[in-house]
Design a protein around this nucleic acid. Structure first.
Lengths: 253, 253
DNA sequence: CGGGACTTTGAGATCTATCAATAGGCGTGG
DNA sequence: CCACGCCTATTGATAGATCTCAAAGTCCCG
């Protein structure tokens, strides 16, 4: 495993202690403290083969706002996220933007990329990833069927999620979209043991994800709040009071 | 390979001559005349291994309007389309529908399905498929890495298409959606060597695919026609006169 | 020739976007 | 410590794109 400072981020994005302790680290040292060892790529391989994965990986820290990849650029890397949140989005030339997903620890970015990346990936907070050269990762896929199975499962999951989002974008009302969105993040936060839905993004990103404007997002949150279905603790923290009602709305009934 | 009459279709959906000639066929006979031998599943395996695929496959003919799978039903099968068009869609309880895709020869339906199908698949015309028991197909995936690679590539392709559609549904205007849609089908028809974009679906399905109403679809087609960018030969046949202009509109400029 | 399904066209209603102003939070610098 | 500016979120008023409802036209097929 090699350590590479993000080309995009300031040096301050990586804490000095990390640099020191990891300078000449072997896989066991870094992977041993990696938050996504049990959920990400590494989960697919037995311990004995793990070092082959680690050998091909470059460990990267991307600061908040940094880009992992840019839509239209030649695709050379594949990423496995270990920490933090990233948003994936596509832009139209006049500035309209569609966020196509948010990824976090255990998820992948750039799977099955064509010659060029088809979307941009931007860090919402400090993001840690393992970066692989595409060719080298393809070699690994060839050599380890378990890895390929993991990638297939991940791609199928992402596809199902994308299809659910198509239903949301094509047919749900603004309020229904918001309800669905909050439930999604309530689930995600639940996994992390939180009692509140912690949103790693602001209203602009929510709007771009739901195909709405920030004003409409704000108005719908107000409606849900006034109906006492949610409680807005802070801009980024929402408590869901009535899950059932929210589910009913989100399902479009 | 086993021949199974679709449970959903009338007997008339399968022509008698097919039934006769295929009743006790071996793989070479059926696959030898299969339109998608070079583009679908079979393309992934060398000829020597093809019979293993054929042994696991049930050949099915589904009549127009017949269902291959229903959203919410336990998922037991995986399909490889050999002929015809099918639409995939998700419904909300009040009747709103989102078509999430159209599949034809060489494409797959039901990949990576969870316990239940996450969408319904309906034949737009007479559809021919190879149907596989899920478990048996999983076994094949294990045994043939080339098959798994093919599935991964297919899933990644579908994912990229879905993400492009999310941009369309979330951010494009009705006219932009129509322009994108027509170009998509112009490409598809081009592959088949046609000079016109041949649409295998009516206005209702177009509307449900683009997140619009049939009236809006109709009005936008009229606008494009009056601008002389397209020529509507028949309800299902559209000639694109000005590709460049349509591309400009579809790209959202 | 007639019936039914689908498409097109029109008029008005509705939802969301746009434009505009206010409010709140946060870091910086005086 | 407070004032200021900046950025984001909220709220209000209006505009506009698309939907809804309604009717007429078209095509296919019996």
């Amino acid at each position: 495993m090699t350590f590479v400072q993000s080309e995009l981020g300031p040096v301050s994005a990586m804490r000095p202690d990390q640099l020191v302790s990891l300078g000449t680290a072997v896989a066991s040292v870094v992977c041993g403290t990696c938050a996504s060892r049990d959920v990400g790529l590494c989960d697919a391989l037995p311990g004995a083969d793990l070092h082959q994965l680690a050998d091909a990986a470059h460990w990267l820290s991307i600061p908040k706002g940094g880009l992992l990849m840019t839509e239209g650029q030649p695709s050379r890397h594949f990423f496995s996220v270990n920490h933090g949140y990233a948003k994936l989005y596509k832009d139209l030339s006049d500035g309209r933007r569609q966020v196509i997903g948010f990824v976090t620890a255990g998820q992948f970015i750039g799977l099955g990329a064509q010659a060029c990346y088809s979307f941009t990936a931007e860090a919402l907070d400090e993001v840690h990833v393992c970066r692989f050269e595409q060719r080298r990762f393809d070699d690994l896929l060839m050599r380890f069927p378990a890895l390929e199975q993991k990638m297939l499962a991940a791609a199928c999951h992402d596809l199902a999620v994308a299809q659910a989002q198509m239903l949301l974008l094509g047919r749900k009302t603004a309020l229904e979209r918001l309800a669905s969105f909050l439930l999604e993040w309530d689930d995600r936060s639940m996994v992390e043991g939180a009692a509140v839905a912690m949103l790693p993004m602001g209203r602009r990103d929510i709007a771009d994800y739901l195909g709405l404007t920030i004003e409409t997002v704000s108005r719908c949150l107000t409606v849900l709040r006034k109906r006492r279905l949610i409680k807005i603790v802070a801009d980024y923290d929402v408590v869901i009071i009535d899950h059932a009602a929210l589910r009913t709305i989100g399902a479009g009934e």
